[in-house]
């Protein structure tokens, strides 16, 4: 049998991206401990709706930890007090009866709050569009494994590619830096043969876009890695730095004079 609990929520309420927000205290009553955190908010929202009040606006989609839509800084930690999970995978059994829970949106200039707890993360999309792709000519489907890739390299690229772009790295970073995200997106292509054509232009274009969006500068605290629901590693940031500096100082097109 599920245990039930009553909680005090301190929720950030903000009308729109222009208005100033504030914390509002809301009581969450009779919450089952096997609910997910988002289901808890659903229950609270139903109560608010019945009372004729505006429900709490928050992002969510797949609710199985793979889409990257859910966010929330819960008691000072992105995706709440556990490691390696998204907010939809956080269960109420993590909390106890009578606890006060502070719920805030991702806080970054590059993630403006749209309403309440939902932020605009299209800055990530624009970084991705700046270079996080490969150009290939379409045609017949190539045979599998025509390009040999060492298992280690394939694994490393795959691990970088598991980034779901949720923005927890930015939310966790004291500088609101997006370098873990950008480095994962650069790494997944830099490691693979298919990504070589645009390799160095990609690193420069994505870093430029990251800076233009107003993200902060990495100070290697490692908070992003610790809070990443997918376990994206800091070594990706070292790789991004290598890619970028190689592009700047040693890129083949730039080091020789072409006739």
């Amino acid at each position: 049998m599920a245990q039930h609990m009553n909680l005090t929520l301190k929720v950030w309420r903000q009308k729109n991206d222009k208005s100033k927000g504030q914390f509002v205290t809301i009581q969450a009553k009779d919450i089952a401990d096997d609910m997910s955190f988002l289901e808890m908010l659903d229950v609270v929202n139903e109560d608010l709706t019945r009372l004729g009040e505006d429900p709490i606006y928050f992002d969510h989609d797949c609710r199985e930890g793979i889409c990257g839509m859910c966010s929330l800084v819960i008691n000072g930690r992105p995706h709440g007090p556990k490691y390696g999970i998204t907010t939809c995978q956080l269960h109420m059994r993590t909390f106890h009866d009578g606890q006060t829970i502070v719920i805030e949106p991702w806080r970054a200039a590059a993630f403006p709050v749209l309403k309440d707890l939902a932020t605009d993360r299209t800055s990530f999309d624009r970084i991705q569009q700046a270079g996080g792709y490969v150009n290939v000519n379409t045609g017949g489907v190539p045979d599998a494994n025509t390009i040999p890739i060492p298992k280690r390299i394939a694994d490393e690229a795959f691990e970088a590619a598991t980034c779901i772009g949720c923005g927890a790295c930015v939310a966790a970073c004291k500088n609101a830096s997006a370098m873990l995200f950008v480095s994962a997106k650069i790494s997944q292509f830099a490691l693979l043969p298919q990504g070589q054509t645009e390799r160095y232009e990609r690193a420069q274009a994505m870093v430029d876009q990251m800076d233009a969006e107003g993200f902060g500068n990495c100070t290697n605290t490692g908070a992003c890695e610790a809070e990443c629901p997918k376990g994206i590693k800091l070594t990706n940031i070292a790789r991004m730095n290598r890619e970028y500096f190689t592009a700047k100082f040693f890129r083949e097109e730039d080091v020789h004079t072409h006739s």
Partner: peptide, 20 residues
Amino acid sequence: QNKAARPVNYARYDGNANST
């Protein structure tokens, strides 16, 4: 720049959970 990248601070920020 880092300060400007987070114009509104967290009311609660548990830095010890993820960094030194």
